[in-house]
Simulated scan of single mutants.
Amino acid sequence: MNVDRMQELVGQMRALAAEAAGKPSAGQGVAGGASSQQGDFAATLKTALDGINQQMQSADTMQQQFSAGQSNLSLSDVMLASQKASLSFQAALQVRNKLVSAYQDIMNIQA
Rank of each mutant, 00 (worst) to 15 (best):
Q12D: 01
Q37G: 03
A26H: 04
D4F: 11
S25L: 07
D60L: 09
S88R: 00
G32C: 12
A20P: 04
D40I: 11
L45P: 01
V30Y: 06
R96Y: 05
Q55R: 09
G22T: 07
A81V: 10
I109C: 12
N2D: 15
G69R: 09
I106D: 01
Q63P: 00
Q38V: 14
Q38C: 13
A48I: 09
A43Y: 05
Q57W: 08
M56P: 01
R14M: 10
V3A: 08
K46Q: 08
Q64T: 10
Q55H: 05
Q55P: 06
Q57S: 15
G27K: 04
T44L: 13
D105L: 14
L80W: 00
G32E: 14
Q110V: 15
G29W: 06
L73M: 08
A15Y: 00
Q55K: 11
A15F: 03
G27E: 09
Q12W: 00
V100D: 07
Q104A: 07
Q57Y: 05
A17M: 15
E19F: 04
S25K: 02
M62K: 10
K84I: 12
D60H: 00
S71T: 12
I106A: 11
N72E: 12
Y103C: 03
F66L: 12
Q104G: 00
M13D: 01
A31F: 15
Q55Y: 01
L45F: 09
G27H: 01
A85Y: 03
A43G: 06
P24S: 02
Q104T: 03
S58H: 10
S58E: 12
D4S: 09
G22S: 05
N97Y: 00
F89K: 08
R96W: 03
A111W: 04
M107G: 00
E19C: 06
A102V: 07
L99N: 00
G51H: 05
A20C: 07
A91P: 02
K23Y: 07
M13E: 04
L93M: 15
A102E: 02
A43D: 10
L49A: 11
Y103L: 14
Q54Y: 06
I52T: 11
L75I: 12
A92H: 02
Q104P: 02
Q70D: 12
M56N: 02
Q57F: 13
A59R: 04
Q110L: 15
G69L: 14
I106K: 03
K84Q: 07
M56S: 12
A21P: 07
G11Q: 06
Q55N: 06
L49P: 03
V30G: 02
N53V: 14
V30F: 14
M6R: 04
K84M: 09
S67F: 09
P24N: 00
M56C: 10
